[in-house]
Simulated assay, not measured.
Amino acid sequence: MAKFQSLSDSEMAVMKVIWRSPHPVTSSELLKVFSESKGWKSQTISTFLSRLTEKGMLKVVKKGAANYYQVAVTQEEYRKQETQSFLENIHGGSVQSFIATLYDLNDITPEDIEELKHWLDKR
Score class of each variant (00 low, 15 high):
1 M>H: 06
1 M>V: 15
2 A>K: 15
3 K>A: 12
4 F>W: 08
6 S>V: 10
7 L>D: 03
9 D>Y: 07
10 S>R: 14
11 E>A: 01
11 E>D: 10
13 A>C: 08
13 A>M: 10
14 V>H: 01
14 V>T: 08
17 V>L: 04
18 I>W: 05
18 I>G: 04
20 R>Q: 13
20 R>A: 13
21 S>D: 04
22 P>V: 03
22 P>M: 02
24 P>E: 04
25 V>W: 07
25 V>S: 05
26 T>N: 04
28 S>E: 15
29 E>Y: 04
30 L>A: 08
32 K>F: 04
32 K>R: 13
33 V>I: 14
33 V>A: 03
33 V>Y: 07
34 F>V: 02
34 F>M: 07
35 S>V: 13
36 E>N: 14
38 K>W: 00
39 G>W: 04
40 W>N: 09
42 S>W: 04
43 Q>V: 09
44 T>W: 09
46 S>F: 06
47 T>P: 02
47 T>D: 12
48 F>E: 04
49 L>Q: 00
50 S>R: 15
50 S>N: 14
52 L>N: 02
52 L>M: 09
54 E>Y: 09
55 K>R: 09
55 K>Q: 14
56 G>K: 01
57 M>F: 11
57 M>I: 04
57 M>A: 03
58 L>C: 01
58 L>P: 00
59 K>C: 01
59 K>N: 14
61 V>S: 08
61 V>W: 01
61 V>T: 12
64 G>P: 06
64 G>D: 07
65 A>Y: 08
65 A>D: 03
67 N>V: 00
67 N>D: 03
68 Y>D: 00
68 Y>A: 01
68 Y>R: 01
69 Y>P: 02
70 Q>D: 06
70 Q>C: 06
72 A>H: 02
74 T>C: 03
76 E>D: 13
77 E>V: 06
79 R>H: 11
80 K>G: 02
80 K>T: 13
80 K>H: 07
81 Q>G: 03
81 Q>T: 08
81 Q>R: 12
84 Q>E: 14
85 S>K: 11
86 F>G: 00
89 N>P: 01
89 N>Q: 13
90 I>D: 12
90 I>L: 10
90 I>A: 07
91 H>C: 12
91 H>R: 02
91 H>D: 00
91 H>K: 08
92 G>Y: 03
92 G>C: 01
93 G>E: 09
96 Q>C: 11
98 F>R: 00
98 F>N: 04
98 F>H: 01
100 A>S: 15
103 Y>Q: 13
107 D>A: 14
108 I>D: 00
109 T>C: 02
112 D>Y: 09
113 I>K: 13
114 E>Q: 15
114 E>C: 05
115 E>W: 05
116 L>T: 07
116 L>N: 04
117 K>H: 06
117 K>N: 12
118 H>C: 09
120 L>C: 11
121 D>T: 11
121 D>S: 09
123 R>A: 11
123 R>H: 10
